[in-house]
Protein backbone atom coordinates (compact mmCIF):
# COMPACT_ATOMS: atom_id res chain seq x y z
CA UNK A 1 0.00 0.00 0.00
CA UNK A 2 2.85 2.32 0.90
CA UNK A 3 4.45 1.78 -2.41
CA UNK A 4 1.35 2.87 -4.22
CA UNK A 5 0.99 5.98 -2.14
CA UNK A 6 4.61 6.83 -2.82
CA UNK A 7 3.78 6.38 -6.39
CA UNK A 8 1.06 8.95 -6.34
CA UNK A 9 3.49 11.67 -5.33
CA UNK A 10 5.61 10.87 -8.35
CA UNK A 11 2.65 11.46 -10.54
CA UNK A 12 3.01 15.18 -10.47
CA UNK A 13 6.59 14.90 -11.66
CA UNK A 14 5.41 12.69 -14.46
CA UNK A 15 2.81 15.26 -15.43
CA UNK A 16 5.45 17.99 -15.64
CA UNK A 17 7.70 15.84 -17.68
CA UNK A 18 4.89 15.03 -20.02
CA UNK A 19 4.02 18.69 -20.51
CA UNK A 20 7.56 19.72 -21.42
CA UNK A 21 8.28 16.90 -23.82
CA UNK A 22 4.90 17.31 -25.41
CA UNK A 23 5.59 20.91 -26.37
CA UNK A 24 9.11 20.12 -27.48
CA UNK A 25 7.67 17.59 -29.93
CA UNK A 26 5.94 20.22 -32.03
CA UNK A 27 8.80 21.30 -34.36
CA UNK A 28 9.68 18.65 -36.91
CA UNK A 29 13.37 17.65 -37.03
CA UNK A 30 14.76 19.26 -33.89
CA UNK A 31 11.79 17.82 -31.96
CA UNK A 32 12.73 14.32 -32.98
CA UNK A 33 16.30 14.95 -31.91
CA UNK A 34 15.14 16.14 -28.55
CA UNK A 35 12.91 13.20 -28.10
CA UNK A 36 15.70 10.77 -28.66
CA UNK A 37 17.82 12.73 -26.26
CA UNK A 38 15.18 12.53 -23.58
CA UNK A 39 15.00 8.80 -24.16
CA UNK A 40 18.73 8.57 -23.69
CA UNK A 41 18.38 10.55 -20.50
CA UNK A 42 15.79 8.09 -19.27
CA UNK A 43 18.39 5.39 -19.64
CA UNK A 44 17.60 3.92 -23.05
CA UNK A 45 20.61 2.92 -25.12
CA UNK A 46 20.97 4.54 -28.50
CA UNK A 47 19.51 1.62 -30.46
CA UNK A 48 16.73 1.22 -27.94
CA UNK A 49 15.95 4.92 -28.22
CA UNK A 50 15.87 4.66 -32.00
CA UNK A 51 13.52 1.72 -31.93
CA UNK A 52 11.27 3.36 -29.40
CA UNK A 53 11.21 6.53 -31.39
CA UNK A 54 10.39 4.69 -34.56
CA UNK A 55 7.54 2.87 -32.86
CA UNK A 56 6.21 6.14 -31.53
CA UNK A 57 6.26 7.73 -34.96
CA UNK A 58 4.54 4.76 -36.55
CA UNK A 59 1.72 4.72 -34.06
CA UNK A 60 1.60 8.51 -33.76
CA UNK A 61 1.80 8.32 -29.97
CA UNK A 62 1.56 11.71 -28.33
CA UNK A 63 2.25 10.95 -24.71
CA UNK A 64 5.24 8.68 -24.85
CA UNK A 65 7.30 10.37 -22.16
CA UNK A 66 4.49 10.17 -19.65
CA UNK A 67 3.95 6.50 -20.45
CA UNK A 68 7.62 5.75 -20.11
CA UNK A 69 7.82 7.60 -16.82
CA UNK A 70 5.01 5.52 -15.36
CA UNK A 71 6.65 2.32 -16.48
CA UNK A 72 10.06 3.36 -15.26
CA UNK A 73 8.60 4.30 -11.93
CA UNK A 74 7.06 0.87 -11.76
CA UNK A 75 10.62 -0.40 -11.74
CA UNK A 76 10.74 -1.78 -15.25
CA UNK A 77 14.06 -1.30 -17.06
CA UNK A 78 14.31 0.27 -20.52
CA UNK A 79 14.90 -3.06 -22.24
CA UNK A 80 11.71 -4.60 -20.89
CA UNK A 81 9.77 -1.40 -21.52
CA UNK A 82 10.82 -1.48 -25.15
CA UNK A 83 9.78 -5.11 -25.36
CA UNK A 84 6.40 -4.29 -23.84
CA UNK A 85 5.78 -1.47 -26.31
CA UNK A 86 6.81 -3.66 -29.21
CA UNK A 87 4.63 -6.55 -28.09
CA UNK A 88 1.67 -4.24 -27.72
CA UNK A 89 1.96 -1.12 -29.91
CA UNK A 90 -1.52 -0.06 -28.77
CA UNK A 91 0.30 1.17 -25.65
CA UNK A 92 1.71 4.11 -27.62
CA UNK A 93 -1.69 5.66 -28.03
CA UNK A 94 -2.51 5.69 -24.32
CA UNK A 95 -1.90 8.44 -21.80
CA UNK A 96 0.41 8.06 -18.84
CA UNK A 97 -2.42 8.83 -16.47
CA UNK A 98 -4.60 6.10 -17.93
CA UNK A 99 -1.84 3.58 -17.49
CA UNK A 100 -1.30 4.74 -13.95
CA UNK A 101 -4.98 4.28 -13.14
CA UNK A 102 -4.98 0.81 -14.59
CA UNK A 103 -1.90 -0.12 -12.61
CA UNK A 104 -3.54 1.19 -9.47
CA UNK A 105 -6.61 -0.87 -10.23
CA UNK A 106 -4.55 -4.03 -10.60
CA UNK A 107 -2.97 -3.28 -7.24
CA UNK A 108 -6.43 -2.98 -5.77
CA UNK A 109 -7.19 -6.42 -7.17
CA UNK A 110 -4.29 -7.74 -5.16
CA UNK A 111 -1.41 -7.88 -7.59
CA UNK A 112 1.66 -7.07 -5.51
CA UNK A 113 5.03 -5.75 -6.61
CA UNK A 114 6.79 -8.39 -8.62
CA UNK A 115 3.63 -10.08 -9.88
CA UNK A 116 2.38 -6.77 -11.18
CA UNK A 117 5.53 -6.14 -13.20
CA UNK A 118 5.55 -9.71 -14.45
CA UNK A 119 1.96 -9.56 -15.64
CA UNK A 120 2.56 -6.31 -17.48
CA UNK A 121 5.73 -7.62 -19.09
CA UNK A 122 4.26 -10.93 -20.17
CA UNK A 123 0.88 -9.63 -21.07
CA UNK A 124 1.11 -5.90 -21.86
CA UNK A 125 -2.40 -6.02 -23.26
CA UNK A 126 -3.57 -5.77 -19.67
CA UNK A 127 -2.69 -2.08 -19.89
CA UNK A 128 -4.90 -1.51 -22.89
CA UNK A 129 -8.01 -2.97 -21.28
CA UNK A 130 -10.38 -0.46 -19.68
CA UNK A 131 -10.72 -0.66 -15.90
CA UNK A 132 -14.38 -1.43 -16.36
CA UNK A 133 -13.56 -4.55 -18.33
CA UNK A 134 -11.04 -5.78 -15.79
CA UNK A 135 -13.46 -5.27 -12.95
CA UNK A 136 -16.26 -6.98 -14.83
CA UNK A 137 -14.16 -10.09 -15.23
CA UNK A 138 -13.08 -10.09 -11.62
CA UNK A 139 -16.69 -9.65 -10.52
CA UNK A 140 -17.79 -12.51 -12.75
CA UNK A 141 -15.15 -14.75 -11.25
CA UNK A 142 -16.28 -13.86 -7.74
CA UNK A 143 -20.01 -13.90 -8.26
CA UNK A 144 -20.63 -16.51 -10.93
CA UNK A 145 -17.70 -18.82 -10.33
CA UNK A 146 -17.62 -18.39 -6.55
CA UNK A 147 -13.93 -17.81 -6.52
CA UNK A 148 -12.32 -16.10 -3.47
CA UNK A 149 -10.66 -12.69 -3.65
CA UNK A 150 -7.25 -14.30 -3.29
CA UNK A 151 -8.08 -16.74 -6.09
CA UNK A 152 -9.07 -13.87 -8.37
CA UNK A 153 -5.66 -12.36 -7.76
CA UNK A 154 -3.99 -15.67 -8.52
CA UNK A 155 -5.98 -16.04 -11.73
CA UNK A 156 -5.06 -12.53 -12.87
CA UNK A 157 -1.43 -13.22 -12.07
CA UNK A 158 -1.22 -16.63 -13.78
CA UNK A 159 -3.75 -16.28 -16.54
CA UNK A 160 -4.29 -12.59 -17.39
CA UNK A 161 -5.66 -13.84 -20.73
CA UNK A 162 -9.03 -14.30 -19.00
CA UNK A 163 -9.45 -10.54 -19.05
CA UNK A 164 -10.00 -10.63 -22.76
CA UNK A 165 -12.26 -13.62 -22.84
CA UNK A 166 -15.90 -13.35 -23.75
CA UNK A 167 -17.76 -13.32 -20.42
CA UNK A 168 -20.29 -15.96 -21.37
CA UNK A 169 -17.53 -18.26 -22.57
CA UNK A 170 -15.54 -17.70 -19.43
CA UNK A 171 -18.49 -18.62 -17.27
CA UNK A 172 -19.15 -21.65 -19.47
CA UNK A 173 -15.55 -22.74 -19.14
CA UNK A 174 -15.86 -22.58 -15.38
CA UNK A 175 -19.11 -24.54 -15.46
CA UNK A 176 -17.55 -27.10 -17.71
CA UNK A 177 -14.71 -27.71 -15.28
CA UNK A 178 -16.96 -27.60 -12.24
CA UNK A 179 -19.89 -29.70 -13.35
CA UNK A 180 -18.64 -31.74 -16.24
CA UNK A 181 -15.19 -32.52 -14.87
CA UNK A 182 -16.03 -32.26 -11.18
CA UNK A 183 -13.13 -29.96 -10.31
CA UNK A 184 -13.16 -27.43 -7.40
CA UNK A 185 -12.07 -23.83 -7.74
CA UNK A 186 -8.83 -24.24 -5.81
CA UNK A 187 -7.72 -26.97 -8.15
CA UNK A 188 -8.63 -24.88 -11.21
CA UNK A 189 -6.50 -22.01 -9.95
CA UNK A 190 -3.59 -24.25 -9.10
CA UNK A 191 -3.70 -25.83 -12.54
CA UNK A 192 -3.75 -22.38 -14.17
CA UNK A 193 -6.79 -23.67 -15.99
CA UNK A 194 -8.16 -20.28 -16.97
CA UNK A 195 -5.23 -19.86 -19.32
CA UNK A 196 -6.61 -22.56 -21.59
CA UNK A 197 -9.33 -21.90 -24.11
CA UNK A 198 -12.57 -23.75 -23.54
CA UNK A 199 -12.02 -25.85 -26.63
CA UNK A 200 -8.53 -26.91 -25.57
CA UNK A 201 -9.79 -27.75 -22.10
CA UNK A 202 -12.57 -29.81 -23.61
CA UNK A 203 -10.19 -31.58 -26.01
CA UNK A 204 -7.78 -32.60 -23.29
CA UNK A 205 -10.52 -33.68 -20.93
CA UNK A 206 -12.73 -35.56 -23.40
CA UNK A 207 -9.76 -37.32 -24.92
CA UNK A 208 -8.85 -38.73 -21.50
CA UNK A 209 -12.46 -39.50 -20.73
CA UNK A 210 -13.03 -41.45 -23.92
CA UNK A 211 -9.77 -43.29 -23.48
CA UNK A 212 -11.12 -44.44 -20.15
CA UNK A 213 -8.68 -42.39 -18.06
CA UNK A 214 -11.03 -39.81 -16.58
CA UNK A 215 -14.45 -40.02 -14.94
CA UNK A 216 -16.84 -37.37 -13.74
CA UNK A 217 -17.15 -37.88 -9.97
CA UNK A 218 -20.62 -38.81 -8.72
CA UNK A 219 -22.56 -36.76 -6.18
CA UNK A 220 -20.33 -38.00 -3.38
CA UNK A 221 -17.26 -37.06 -5.39
CA UNK A 222 -16.34 -40.66 -6.08
CA UNK A 223 -15.00 -42.28 -9.23
CA UNK A 224 -14.26 -45.88 -10.18
CA UNK A 225 -10.84 -44.95 -11.48
CA UNK A 226 -8.22 -42.60 -10.14
CA UNK A 227 -8.44 -39.37 -12.13
CA UNK A 228 -5.22 -37.56 -12.95
CA UNK A 229 -4.85 -34.19 -11.23
CA UNK A 230 -6.01 -31.26 -13.31
CA UNK A 231 -2.63 -29.59 -13.06
CA UNK A 232 -0.94 -32.71 -14.44
CA UNK A 233 -2.85 -32.65 -17.68
CA UNK A 234 -3.73 -28.98 -18.10
CA UNK A 235 -0.66 -26.90 -17.41
CA UNK A 236 1.76 -29.19 -19.20
CA UNK A 237 2.97 -29.15 -22.79
CA UNK A 238 1.08 -31.16 -25.37
CA UNK A 239 3.99 -33.57 -25.57
CA UNK A 240 3.97 -34.20 -21.82
CA UNK A 241 0.22 -34.52 -21.89
CA UNK A 242 0.40 -37.15 -24.63
CA UNK A 243 3.34 -39.17 -23.37
CA UNK A 244 2.76 -39.01 -19.62
CA UNK A 245 -1.00 -38.83 -19.22
CA UNK A 246 -2.97 -39.76 -22.33
CA UNK A 247 -0.43 -42.28 -23.65
CA UNK A 248 -1.41 -41.50 -27.21
CA UNK A 249 0.11 -40.24 -30.43
CA UNK A 250 -0.11 -36.64 -31.58
CA UNK A 251 -1.91 -37.79 -34.76
CA UNK A 252 -4.71 -39.35 -32.74
CA UNK A 253 -5.04 -36.29 -30.56
CA UNK A 254 -5.16 -33.87 -33.46
CA UNK A 255 -7.84 -35.84 -35.27
CA UNK A 256 -9.75 -36.07 -32.01
CA UNK A 257 -9.65 -32.30 -31.52
CA UNK A 258 -11.05 -31.77 -35.00
CA UNK A 259 -13.83 -34.26 -34.32
CA UNK A 260 -14.80 -32.84 -30.95
CA UNK A 261 -14.83 -29.34 -32.37
CA UNK A 262 -17.32 -30.44 -35.01
CA UNK A 263 -19.38 -32.40 -32.48
CA UNK A 264 -19.59 -29.25 -30.40
CA UNK A 265 -20.59 -27.01 -33.26
CA UNK A 266 -23.31 -29.42 -34.26
CA UNK A 267 -24.62 -29.81 -30.74
CA UNK A 268 -24.74 -26.04 -30.54
CA UNK A 269 -26.61 -25.59 -33.80
CA UNK A 270 -29.03 -28.38 -32.82
CA UNK A 271 -29.79 -26.53 -29.61
CA UNK A 272 -30.39 -23.36 -31.59
CA UNK A 273 -32.71 -25.21 -33.91
CA UNK A 274 -34.67 -26.63 -31.00
CA UNK A 275 -35.06 -23.12 -29.63
CA UNK A 276 -36.30 -21.91 -33.00
CA UNK A 277 -38.86 -24.69 -33.33
Amino acid sequence: MDASRGHMSFCSTRQDHHQSSHTSQVPERPGAQLNIRSLLEMGFSETQADEMHEGALKSRGKHIPSILTVLLLLGLNPASILKIMQKCPEMYSLKGAEIQQRIDNLRKLGLVEGSLQRVISHYPKVMVLPIKRVNMVSRLLKEKCHVTVQQVTDILRDSPEVLEEDLARLEYKFQYAYFRMGVRQAEMVKAKMFRLTLSMLRCRHCFLERRGLYQTPDKKGQTLILNPLLKDFICVSEETYLTQVAMATAEEFHVFCKLIEREQEEEFSNEEQELDD
Binding site: F207, R210, R211, L213, M247, A248, E252, F256, I260, R262
Partner: peptide
Protein backbone atom coordinates in the same frame (compact mmCIF):
# COMPACT_ATOMS: atom_id res chain seq x y z
CA UNK B 1 -16.29 -53.62 -22.82
CA UNK B 2 -13.97 -51.94 -20.33
CA UNK B 3 -13.95 -55.13 -18.31
CA UNK B 4 -13.38 -57.56 -21.19
CA UNK B 5 -11.49 -55.64 -23.86
CA UNK B 6 -8.97 -54.05 -21.54
CA UNK B 7 -7.78 -57.60 -20.87
CA UNK B 8 -8.17 -58.84 -24.42
CA UNK B 9 -6.52 -55.85 -26.12
CA UNK B 10 -4.27 -54.66 -23.29
CA UNK B 11 -2.75 -51.26 -23.92
CA UNK B 12 -4.43 -50.99 -27.32
CA UNK B 13 -7.82 -50.69 -25.65
CA UNK B 14 -7.77 -46.94 -24.77
CA UNK B 15 -7.01 -46.10 -28.36
CA UNK B 16 -9.80 -48.36 -29.66
CA UNK B 17 -12.16 -47.05 -27.00
CA UNK B 18 -11.74 -43.38 -27.88
CA UNK B 19 -12.18 -44.22 -31.56
CA UNK B 20 -15.40 -46.16 -30.97
CA UNK B 21 -16.75 -43.26 -28.92
CA UNK B 22 -15.98 -40.77 -31.69
CA UNK B 23 -17.49 -40.33 -35.11
Amino acid sequence: FDATYSIQLGNLWPSVRVAMLSE
